[in-house]
Simulated scan of single mutants.
Amino acid sequence: TFDPLIIREAIEFEMSRNGQVFFINNRIKNIHELEDIIKREVPDARIAVGHGQMDPAKLESIIIDFVNQEYDVLIATSIVESGIDIPNANTIIINNAQNFGLSDLHQLRGRVGRSNKKAFAYLLAPPLHTLTPEARRRLQAIENFSELGHGFHIAMQDLDIRGAGNLLGAEQSGFIADLGYEVYQKILTEAVNELKNDEFAELYHEADEDNKISGENFVDDVQIESDLELLFPALYIPNDSERITLYRELDNMEKESDIMQFTERLEDRFGKIPPEGRELILVVRLRSIAKTLGIEKVVLKNGRMSLFLVTNSESPYYQSKAFDKLLNYIQKYPRKCELKDRNGRRSVSIQSIPNVETACMVLSEINGL
């Protein structure tokens, strides 16, 4: 707690080893009262006062004089929180520490201990039982995490105390832990798009106009099902965790340039890619083109490709140019294409598709019509 005796002992000890002291007080209104208290308790101390409302030239002069050790104590607001590196100042006293944020306290404490001398940080506050639970947790955290490298723990504690909003805060963290971040993001994106298309459709009228050109905005993700062998063989990549990491990296790709770079890195590390591995890589391209055409699901089985379209039959997708492209392809190749409508689910079945490479070629052709 605020005690003139503690302040006097802290300043006298620092002065006895030719050091300097920061005294932080974030209220300009009573900053000169503190100056009087320190003058009374430590008459020999050379004291300077600095705050943000002072003339910039005068403030700069005071800071430079303090750096040059012409003052023993600098009473200041939190303007010293960053950007000031004074190795000779190794004691900091923070008045009313309960009013500072955890990151602020951590930054202020970091102003001392920047040389080979042991540093001290005094946090002056009312008795803990009189403080709010959040203020008490902040002070306890800054006390507990005082070792070098504890900045990350302080940041996590700060996040826990303040919360990170509804999406990643305590209310939702359990769901993220159960589902995984990627799946949670997909569900969240679907929910946002659903609101865009239904409840807030008028606000996104311009986006709907763009949808007439492309079907991509109607589909969040494309499912791929196949009876083909699509994998990196264990003989090609022996390490299981390595293969899983590469599968995950491949699954997150969308751009053609990313696929090319991935293929080059793979060949550089493991040699020539086997056919089943090349087919797997082509799945990324297949999914990207299918998304552009507004296809929710692609099934490659028994030498046939089935394209499942947007489930909602009243969706504006069926008036889009993406759907027109599909219809044009069916008209162009009526013998190998079939448009189906079973239980309200529309799909296009295309024959003679033996592999993913052929499927990519067909979808590219459709997209180019």
Rank of each mutant, 00 (worst) to 15 (best):
T1G: 06
F2S: 03
F2G: 05
A10P: 00
A10C: 03
E12G: 00
F13P: 00
R17C: 05
N18C: 07
Q20P: 01
I24A: 11
R27S: 05
R27Y: 03
I28H: 00
I31A: 01
H32L: 13
K39W: 02
P43C: 01
P43A: 02
A45P: 01
I47C: 02
I47R: 08
G52A: 14
D55R: 12
S61Y: 11
S61H: 10
I63C: 01
I64Q: 07
V67E: 04
E70V: 02
V73S: 10
V73W: 12
L74S: 07
T77L: 02
T77E: 10
E81V: 10
S82N: 11
N88H: 07
N90T: 08
T91E: 11
I93T: 11
I93L: 15
S103I: 15
D104K: 03
D104I: 10
L105C: 04
L105Y: 03
Q107M: 12
Q107C: 04
R109M: 10
G110Q: 07
V112S: 10
N116P: 01
N116G: 00
K117S: 13
A119R: 15
L123K: 11
L124E: 15
P126M: 14
L128Y: 13
H129G: 07
H129F: 11
T130A: 08
A135L: 14
A135I: 12
R137K: 13
L139N: 14
F145G: 09
L148W: 04
L148Y: 12
D158A: 09
I161H: 00
L179H: 03
G180A: 06
E182R: 12
E182S: 11
E182Y: 09
V183E: 14
Q185Y: 03
L188N: 05
L188A: 14
L188D: 10
F200E: 15
L203N: 11
H205R: 15
H205A: 11
E206W: 03
E209V: 02
D210Q: 10
I213P: 01
S214R: 03
S214D: 08
Q223P: 01
D227C: 07
L228F: 05
L231E: 14
I237V: 13
I237K: 03
E242I: 04
E242K: 12
P274Q: 11
P274E: 10
E276Q: 09
L286G: 06
K297H: 08
G303N: 12
L307D: 07
V310I: 06
N312G: 07
L327V: 06
Q331C: 02
E338N: 04
K340Q: 08
K340G: 02
K340D: 01
I350V: 14
Q351T: 03
S352T: 05
N355W: 04
V356Q: 07
T358I: 06
S364F: 08
E365K: 05
